[in-house]
């Protein structure tokens, strides 16, 4: 798999979330994603960036434009050193929230992308990787 572009962006404020959305849209466009595909990956990025900020006490996202054979994709990896998630299965249930959200960020983003992977350790932090392919 070839990486065409690879950058890291901080997630420390809600402005950073806006920035993450902008960059994700730009890169999806660069990968010639359709409007629907762009919207899906941007929306998932928005959800996960906000989780990183709100629950993970901030962190960063690595954005990659990738190519595998004829397939072009955008991959995002969100990392934080926050409190971690004690029960992943529960966190991935529709409607589950420990805050005041709709509890659809994790489960919803999972449905919006092709690849989804989440690792979390209590006291250490959380990493969520998503990718959407054209």
């Amino acid at each position: 798999m070839a990486t065409l572009r690879d950058e890291i962006f901080p997630i420390r404020s809600s402005d950073d979330i806006v920035k993450v959305r902008q960059v994700t849209r730009e890169w999806a466009l660069m990968q010639t994603f359709s409007l629907v595909d762009q919207t899906k990956i941007v929306t998932a990025a928005s959800e996960l960036a906000r989780n990183t900020l709100e629950y993970g006490r901030g962190g960063e996202v690595r954005i990659q434009a990738v190519q595998e054979g004829p397939r072009r994709g955008v991959r995002l990896t969100f990392t934080d050193q926050g409190p971690g998630i004690p029960d992943l299965a529960k966190a991935l249930q529709d409607g589950f929230t420990t805050g005041s959200g709709m509890g659809l960020g994790l489960s919803g983003s999972k449905r919006l992308v092709n690849d989804f992977d989440i690792q979390s350790e209590v006291g250490k932090g959380t990493t969520v990787m998503i990718a959407r392919w054209k």
Binding site: L35, V36, T39, D94, L104, G108, S109
Partner: peptide, 13 residues
């Protein structure tokens, strides 16, 4: 718009 409608449905809203 259509892309927004689709995304909202996938989110489960």
């Amino acid at each position: 718009r259509p892309q927004i409608a689709q995304t909202i449905v996938h989110l489960g809203v």
